[in-house]
Computed example of a mutant assay.
Amino acid sequence: MATPSTLHGHRAAHRRPSAHRHLPAAAVGVPLLLGVVYGLYTAFILSSGHVFSTAKTVLSIVSGLVLAVLAFGFGRIQHSLPKEARAAGYGVLIGGAMGFLYSMTGSSVLSSSFIGAGFGIGAVIATFYLFYTHED
């Protein structure tokens, strides 16, 4: 008599998803490194030629933390976005970060906006080209 294949020890090819998903080290390490470097560079800009105060220290720490959180969050959702939206997201992230850094030098809001927009447009073009040429 023929018996079903499940009785012979054959199992289905699918696996049950694990309850705990582990993040790769780069998924946490890269945004953390970016945040630390960004915070230190903000502190360097704020302290150049001036006395360093508690408010400047807090601003440096908060700016690095905000960039790290935004980079981590965008890194978590970037693979679900089309390449155009992903490139725009990188442009907004890089342009905003560079415009904020430029504003720390004491320049006007308008010039900081132009610097941020320039870096953002450059980042959009570069990342879109990268995503378009490396399609799956």
Rank of each mutant, 00 (worst) to 15 (best):
V124Q: 06
L65R: 09
V124H: 08
L81M: 15
Y102Q: 03
S80Y: 06
S103N: 01
L67A: 09
S113C: 08
I115T: 12
G118P: 00
L101R: 01
S113R: 10
F131R: 01
S108N: 02
L130T: 12
V69D: 05
A88F: 06
A117I: 13
H134P: 00
A85D: 10
S107Q: 11
A123F: 07
E84L: 12
S108C: 02
E84M: 07
P82C: 14
G95E: 08
S111N: 06
G99L: 13
V69T: 15
A126H: 02
R76N: 05
G106L: 04
G122W: 07
Y132E: 14
I94Q: 01
G116H: 13
F100D: 04
T133R: 12
F131P: 05
L110P: 00
I77T: 04
Q78E: 10
A71I: 05
S80F: 05
H79N: 14
Y90F: 15
L65V: 14
Y132F: 11
Y90R: 06
G106D: 02
Y129W: 12
F119Q: 01
V109S: 07
I125Y: 06
F74K: 15
F128I: 00
L101T: 11
L65D: 12
V109G: 01
T133Q: 11
S112H: 13
A87G: 09
R86P: 03
V124A: 06
G73S: 10
L130G: 03
G89V: 13
I115W: 12
H134Y: 05
Y102F: 15
I94C: 12
F119E: 00
T105M: 08
G99T: 08
F114H: 03
S107T: 05
V66E: 02
S113H: 02
F131M: 05
S108G: 06
L70D: 02
A97W: 10
R76E: 03
T105L: 14
G120T: 00
G106H: 08
Y90W: 15
V109Y: 02
G122H: 06
A126Q: 01
P82W: 09
A68Y: 09
R76T: 02
S108M: 03
Q78F: 01
I121V: 10
A85Y: 06
G95C: 08
G89D: 09
G118S: 02
F72L: 13
R76D: 02
L81E: 06
L93W: 01
L101S: 07
G118M: 02
L67I: 13
G96Y: 15
I125T: 13
V66H: 03
V124R: 12
L81H: 07
I125C: 11
M98A: 13
P82Q: 14
M98C: 11
I94M: 08
Y132P: 05
A87D: 06
F100R: 10
F128D: 00
F131Y: 15
H134E: 08
M104E: 04
